[in-house]
Design a protein around this nucleic acid. Structure first.
Lengths: 207, 207, 207, 207
DNA sequence: TATGAATGAGCATTCATTCAT
DNA sequence: TATGAATGAATGCTCATTCAT
């Protein structure tokens, strides 16, 4: 039994090591420079070994995105337990989302900015599910605002999607166009959030 | 005389054919699968021939984006001459932007959703200039709204950027996540636009 | 156990096969016509396979030269143990050098007659080291002649270099200009060696 | 007649321009970076035009080498008229040869250090002839030394070739191995020349 | 569980050259 | 005389992946 456990733990560990290496390469060298070979070199295993833990590159990326998105979800959950006021929780959530994207820009790019394999729920089921979960949370907070009468939302589904789109806009544009004269990114971020909440008529009295 | 003209026309035509093929490959196979070779195969010329019309791959993509963005700018200019009311012009402009992105999704992707190399004004000077021109137009319309007292904007620069980010958000997300349950994309688009204009307190009396 | 050994041997053998093929292409088609692909075709492996044995083309060439130069050095060492008289050893060494160059003319060409990239110790460290070793040996023998009073050399460093240059001259010229009317190459070689030793006032009494 | 002359002159001029451009590229970018395209770009003509003046690349290089070697021969002829003493003339000629090689290292490399097309008198007849002419001159001076009893040469043909080989040695080695620790190239050159003349027992009384 | 060996397909780009005009 | 258009062949190298062990 101890042997089986150890084996299982070791297996999990190498898997994590692979993902970690891939993430590191993402951050250091950008998405397009992540290759199976380079990951293998980094962890000092043979490329073949990776295929014992992941079906193929798409699978690896899928898992990678899932893991990264899990952090976003975890952060969102933290805010649930920290901030009682739903509007404030929503505002903090939006800000956290943007910060998350800027911090893990390569993962964000893979998860949300590239159509190719990652929008296919069959090829990337985990990332897909995690993405939906993150969205669901956002919608939940918005619904809570609505339920408490803090926001007048006639169409929750549309508003939630619009809200997501809005914060995705500034997040992704800052990633894709870092050289654009943003003047002060933070000022623009503040403006986006303020406009978004204003736009859905959030009662921000407690602000 | 006629000979020269015909040659010039033929040359222009092949150039367009190359751009067309590239655009088509974008659409069909995604950006990363566009190679000089594939373009050449598609037009049934040798790869070398492409280099007679474009300096290199970056140049080709640059021209591709420029061409596409020119359509957006043309559309914006059309609206200038059609719609007198600045707020309505702004609203129509936002809608046109989103529609443009959805229609030319691959060009939009190349121009606005990919960090490397397209954010480098030195490598893609044409696309860069065209992108700025499009933004400048948006800002101009917003400024006009402000000038006529239809919108109270304390920080024009930040608001213009925020507005761009917002419509970019829905545009790019619809492209990157076409399988997401958008329910009705148009309803979400409407919501985004309404929220955006509300968020900057546009006087939409004439709506 | 036997398996591991056999694998190691096979690996070594393929490495040798690659070097052999490269050398052969040098001989047959000249340096500039040696490409990774042609080597691969010759050994009937894929080009990729070569990269399992050598880092890149420069590395392959570096190893090739090293291997060839090793034969020269081995020959020089042999003479050390065979010929006691230092002047005779020097004479035999010069002759061996020239013979070596004529026999392995393509390797000689790569090692000593081409400026780029082979003169760069960083790109071709092995060949570089081997070349210096061969020169050092020549200088050593000359120094021994001087020590025993058989040669009056006022400037050992300059003389050693001049001597090397001299035998390199006939070696490389016979390689580069095989069609020149040499009349009798061996007679010219003899003359060069005699002049060289005379020129440094070697006491050739025992000749 | 005037028209024909002008045409002929213009034709000669463009031919010279091409050769000049090629030579310049040699010097600036090294042999391997000289391509028909680059030459054409430099003179602002189309690549096709070059083929009106030269059969192919080998022909162009042949003419180029011929031209360069003509300078060496010219220099040698100059010395004939300047220096009366044949031994001194020989010494000056050797030095001039080495200086010539160092100054026009790329042409020297093409003419004397590369086996491939340039040793083939059928493909490069002009360079071949010019090379022989330069050698013939050297032999002539040596013969003159012999005739005046200043040098005891038993085998003129062998000695002349040996002498050529010797000065080619230092010339080519300085070109191919610029990073070798030559200490002081000029000192080595002096040593080579001194040894060479000593080696053939030149009466250097007038030195 | 892990790997060493191997590969087919692909990449952007450059080359010398030709042909019709 | 000069060229614009075009090309076939080639270059070094990297990729994700497979298979036998």
């Amino acid at each position: 039994m101890g042997v089986q456990e150890r084996r299982l733990r070791e297996k999990r560990e190498l898997r994590e090591e692979i993902l970690e290496a891939a993430r590191d390469l993402f951050v250091r060298e950008g998405f397009e420079n992540v290759s199976m070979r380079k990951i293998a070199e980094k962890i000092e295993y043979s490329p073949t070994t990776i295929y014992l833990y992941f079906q193929d590159k798409a699978d690896l990326l899928d898992c990678l995105c899932e893991e990264t998105l899990a952090r976003l979800i975890r952060r969102q959950t933290e805010l649930d337990q920290t901030i009682a006021d739903p509007v404030e929780r929503l505002r903090a959530g939006l800000r956290a989302y943007i910060e998350f994207g800027r911090k893990h820009s390569n993962s964000y790019q893979v998860s949300f900015m590239m159509p190719q394999p990652f929008d296919d729920p069959e090829r990337c089921p985990r990332a897909h599910a995690a993405g939906e979960k993150a969205f669901d949370h956002l919608r939940g907070v918005l619904r809570e605002c609505q339920r408490q009468g803090r926001i007048q939302v006639s169409d929750l589904e549309a508003s939630a999607r619009a809200l997501w789109a809005t914060i995705h806009g500034i997040t992704s544009l800052l990633i894709a166009k870092p050289r654009f004269p943003w003047i002060d990114p933070d000022r623009v971020i503040d403006t986006v959030i303020a406009q978004a909440l204003d736009g859905i008529h959030a009662d921000q009295s407690s602000r």
